[in-house]
Design a protein around this nucleic acid. Structure first.
Lengths: 141, 141
DNA sequence: AGATTCCTGCAACCGAGTTGCAAAAAAGAG
DNA sequence: CTCTTTTTTGCAACTCGGTTGCAGGAATCT
């Protein structure tokens, strides 16, 4: 259904749209939150773990997705929204729920700009907050 | 030399100061930056890896140290500065240099407060910036 | 001293991520 | 269309950070 937009996204970033890559990108677009390789493995039973890894790394290099380290032990991936990949200022804060193990995108909260000392070069940044999401904090009481 | 302050710190947080724990805490206090278990293992050749882990986890529970996930693949640890452990507002931004693999504490840059949606409970937060530190960015040119 | 509890070292294990290699698929040449 | 070359994929084996079970040792208590 949205395989067309998938293919277009890939072509726009110089990624050859193979069958597996379309499956991976579709799966990524389907989930609203940041997902792990294990999540993708479960969703795409026919595709091998190493292939998913290599595909995600390819997507990362071509700025189709970005990686979110939520401190859960496994990296999460998310499709870039900007037309030209994600710039740092487009990146948002993530919330990792320690109860349900989901990583939610707080898209409204952009990464606050911090003044780095001179000479420092930024390549990426990650602001992740851990705790309980609204659903889990309610359930606990 | 500062083993006395080590013992005091532990007692203040209800941690029995054993020989190994003093060694670990001393080593942590010695380094100005956040260090990994591997770093501590190298510094304390007589102490087993699993013991260092368990010691750090004990320290974490008792708020003697806090963990910094710098996205390098190995967790880093740092002694809490506040008298009463680290509150969230005392936490600072970290910079991980991808060239020299050090994790520097930008102690002057406190974690910017973000407005979370209602119902969310925070237990910890991590803001890590990756890139090149001043020394490595100079060396590259 | 003897019993109990806590701490530590060792070895084995787990899971995320990576790599080498060969088979399969796609692209290109004639 | 067929043969060759390149790219992609699956499999298995591996690395490494982190964890766990267990037994020996140290400390604490009576």
């Amino acid at each position: 259904m949205n395989s067309k937009t998938c293919i277009e996204r890939m072509k726009a970033r110089d990624v050859k749209p193979t069958a597996v890559r379309i499956l991976v990108l579709e799966a990524l677009l389907l989930c609203r939150n940041a997902v792990s390789v294990a999540d993708l493995e479960a969703a795409l039973v026919t595709v091998d773990k190493s292939t998913i890894f290599r595909t995600l790394n390819l997507f990362l290099e071509h700025h189709l997705v970005h990686a979110v380290d939520d401190g859960s032990g496994s990296m999460k991936y998310e499709v870039c929204e900007g037309a030209d990949g994600c710039s740092l200022s487009d990146m948002h804060v993530h919330f990792h729920c320690e109860a349900c193990n989901r990583t939610l995108c707080l898209k409204s909260v952009h990464l606050p700009d911090v003044g780095l000392p001179p000479g420092y070069e930024i390549t990426s940044a990650n602001y992740t907050i851990k705790g309980l999401c609204d659903k889990c904090s309610k359930r606990r009481q």
